[in-house]
Design a protein around this nucleic acid. Structure first.
Lengths: 155, 155
DNA sequence: TCTGACAGTCAGCGTTACTGACGATCCGCT
DNA sequence: AGCGGATCGTCAGTAACGCTGACTGTCAGA
């Protein structure tokens, strides 16, 4: 790989910085999660399903910020691995309620530990002030629900 | 678009935050640059070519962190728009020296103004302390040439 | 019951970036 | 001078990702 140090002209461009920070994190993430047979997106799906009850595919897609057609293949993959189950909602039979299986619960816990450890390593070059500041700042840019800073991940 | 507010479980995940910050910036960027007929990546190419003399395609690809095969289509597109020119290096006839045309110079200046304005808007929800902190922090994560903080873009 | 809206699925497309192969060129060595 | 390995640009093919549009089944209101 032709991995030059980023030249002066690019080091001040937000697009370049965000893109490459994201790419590096993604790479670390897939390495860290490989032993668990899932990637970062799938882990996020598991986490969202675990945190909310009775989520339909569309609800989950909304929370994750992905398209509903993308959600189909995401759930397909997780169902193949027997980490989630689809079941028809009795209330509204158009909806697929997606639920973690016991194996999914377990895998979620293990992989979440690995993710947290990975993020800790990723942020290691920063002072702890800078690290929490980064997370807080990104939250206000992305979530932007105007206020209420949130600690990174105290676990 | 199903644009929910990011749920609690995701707001502390670095991957989610970086990805969505990047996506939002990309969207703003293409809007801001649309009048100039280029996108953010092409603008970065122009900026790199402007900042260094006699860059070959491979040199430029190295600075930008893209593959040399990607560089081909990037230069193709810019050459179609008559913003850059390929010319064979007399020293090493394997190399294509890529240079800005006068039109390319001009377009670069205009588009750079638009980009800076766009970034200013994008960071507007942050205090100026947080904004410069974000840039500085991302620089140490990405460039990580161990030290020497750099101001965002004083222009 | 009819009509419009909604949930899930699938096929197809465009983007992005890669791998692998190829021709042209360069350079070190004999 | 000429040979062989490396380098640069190019192109075809491929994979991941996410979208649009169409289709089926289901729901809810007139």
């Amino acid at each position: 790989m032709t991995r030059d140090a980023p030249p002066e002209v690019l080091r001040s461009r937000l697009g370049y910085l965000l893109k490459h920070a994201y790419l590096r994190l993604t790479e670390e993430s897939s390495l860290a999660l490989a032993p668990y047979g899932i990637d970062g997106r799938e882990l996020a799906v598991l986490a969202v399903l675990d945190a909310h009850d009775e989520l339909s595919q569309l609800d989950a897609a909304g929370k994750l910020g992905v398209d509903r057609t993308t959600m189909v293949s995401l759930v397909d993959a997780l169902e193949d691995k027997e980490l989630v189950e689809r079941r028809r909602s009795p209330r509204d039979r158009r909806k697929n309620i997606v639920q973690l299986t016991p194996a999914g619960q377990e895998r979620l816990q293990e992989a979440e530990s690995a993710r947290k450890e990975m993020e800790r390593r990723f942020l290691a070059p920063l002072s702890s002030t800078d690290a929490t500041g980064l997370v807080r700042t990104l939250q206000s840019l992305v979530g932007a629900p105007s206020g209420a800073g949130q600690a990174p991940d105290s676990t």
